[in-house]
Design a protein around this nucleic acid. Sequence first.
DNA 1: CGATGGGATGTGAGCGTTAACACTATGCCC
DNA 2: GGGCATAGTGTTAACGCTCACATCCCATCG
Lengths: 359, 359
Amino acid sequence: MSGDVRRQPAEKPSTPVVAPTSPAVPERMATMMDVAKLAGVSHQTVSRVLNDQAKVSPQTRTRVLDAMRQLDYQPNSAARALVTRRSKTLGLVTFDTTLFGPASMVYGIEQAARDAGYFVSIASIRTLSRRAVLDAIGQLRLQSVEGIVAIVPKDSAVVALSAVPPGIALVGVGVGGGADVPMVGVDNVVGAALATRHLLSLGHKTVHHISGPPGWPEARERATGWREALTAYAAPAPPVLVGDWSARSGYLAAQRLAGDPTVTAVFCANDQMALGALRALHEVGRRVPADVSVVGFDDVPEGPYLIPPLTTVQQDFAEVGRRSLALLMEQIATGARPHRQIHLTPQLKVRDSSARAVA
Amino acid sequence: MSGDVRRQPAEKPSTPVVAPTSPAVPERMATMMDVAKLAGVSHQTVSRVLNDQAKVSPQTRTRVLDAMRQLDYQPNSAARALVTRRSKTLGLVTFDTTLFGPASMVYGIEQAARDAGYFVSIASIRTLSRRAVLDAIGQLRLQSVEGIVAIVPKDSAVVALSAVPPGIALVGVGVGGGADVPMVGVDNVVGAALATRHLLSLGHKTVHHISGPPGWPEARERATGWREALTAYAAPAPPVLVGDWSARSGYLAAQRLAGDPTVTAVFCANDQMALGALRALHEVGRRVPADVSVVGFDDVPEGPYLIPPLTTVQQDFAEVGRRSLALLMEQIATGARPHRQIHLTPQLKVRDSSARAVA
DNA sequence: CGATGGGATGTGAGCGTTAACACTATGCCC
DNA sequence: GGGCATAGTGTTAACGCTCACATCCCATCG
């Protein structure tokens, strides 16, 4: 049972926002008919000019174009969508756009969509719950989007993607390989392994890991990459400290490591946590990188200006956006939803926070 | 000119994205007619149920609702928009959604819009040029948005807002008081004064300022607030160091201040630059806050975990979003565009990066 | 007991566009 | 000169919905 077709009422914002009850009469815009009349042609000819179909004589085309300009004519997208059954709109479901990762992807996707002639309608969600994702999808369906890009990098949210009817193209971003939806994402296993091997190759006996929270594919994958690299180097795998992506959690986790003098290298699952870790180490007087090396993941713009500049794993978010869009367009064109998974290879950015282990 | 504010866009998409040329035939969805037939009523009754109009008997309503569920009926928004002349869609023009400020506002606005039953279509722009803004507005007009929220905090972009035809509601966010569009924003003058007075009241003889780039209303206003506070305390106003909002520019600017032992307090126009400044001071061994106090602006989530935790000016971005939306809804309801300016008062968040001046 | 009223429902038109097809003129061929 | 392609244009019918109005039924009242 999918419940209500209609929308939820407002929760109650501190500034009550209400939709206008008595909308001002929208002034009539010029229609295709008006343009046709002014240009002395039929509306169909106007339509032909608009859609650049060949069979229009140059002088007619000019006359029509002039008329359009004169009337400031804007084609009515609703009418067009009604008859063509294509909205030229993509939906974007995204979690907390305030975070660097999602924000960058939104940006990348939006740019790519625009280049492809698509509009982008956004539905950001407060929590990565199944319910929230379903609501967002419902809202986007109401707008008859042709496709949906879902940036919902948490298991509980990913499962909700199966609710997207097959008629709508779908791409999951950063949703991990487990989901049975087409997806695009950075290869987190490789990225984490890159970071870990980098530290091991600097002579560290082992590498500690501050991971992302449980239930996040990216957290899991990064932990996997870390573990694999340790195994490859036959290094012992210390217990994972679980964070929640926030600087605060990195700080707290690192406080627990900071007291242990055998800890010389820490790989954090994102840059925010690494930032927190830097602070925790600094507080107890452990120097980075002299005493402890720290590596992050994401490459936030501030990375080079942290104390010290952060070694991290760089993801090409713009490319993720483009790939997602390409995958979506492919689905729209073919009408099928191939079980395709695209993994982008991240790069290690070595800065000052990682250094050779002291003997 | 101090260079780029933005992160570099990939110059040439390695994955070319093209709109599908041969769209798969979209399968027919259930229409209101289908629902009506199944429920044994007229399409008009279905419409009444959908729009909650009173005059439907409970049992009819139930039957219709059942039929809808059974057919997984989705009202066709294009058809509705066509006849009502209302798209229930808002446009969002925004600059680099990767930055914390814009991203937070987008988030706030989207939430508020959704609560008000509006869809949000986003048009992010690569540069804050007149041209880019015009393009974005054009694109949104094509979608017949009922209103536009423009987060374009630069003069060159603000001027383009006059191109929005009066029939479309419009709100500028962070566009400064100079523009003749309705606007919502944080009171930057007050915020900057708050920060500066805080430093002066701690006994600093004066406060240095690393400002945002020229042509940005917010940069100008923050500089004004800073200057006013200095005047109020009869403190000398040192020359302004101009940054570009980036951590890098804060770093470079602070390097120039760091050598001067008379510098004991620095107010940075945003947190990124403050972060860069922290690093520059650290590099030359000037301790914060023991030797130099630093205050930022924005209150990014990482602030409390910088070295040291950053004193800053907090803005309520969510509230900005809600207010923008309320202002937009008001315009839509009345059909007028009042010259209203809403300034929200920011708050000082005192953390460890600011301290009493040593005698 | 017919008139009145209002609650519940149905009918028809039209929103602005594109698709399908019909039409006209022109040019070219045999 | 008839046939036929083809370029250029027009006509008509949807698309799925809401609005204005018409209709029906039953209760109530003078």
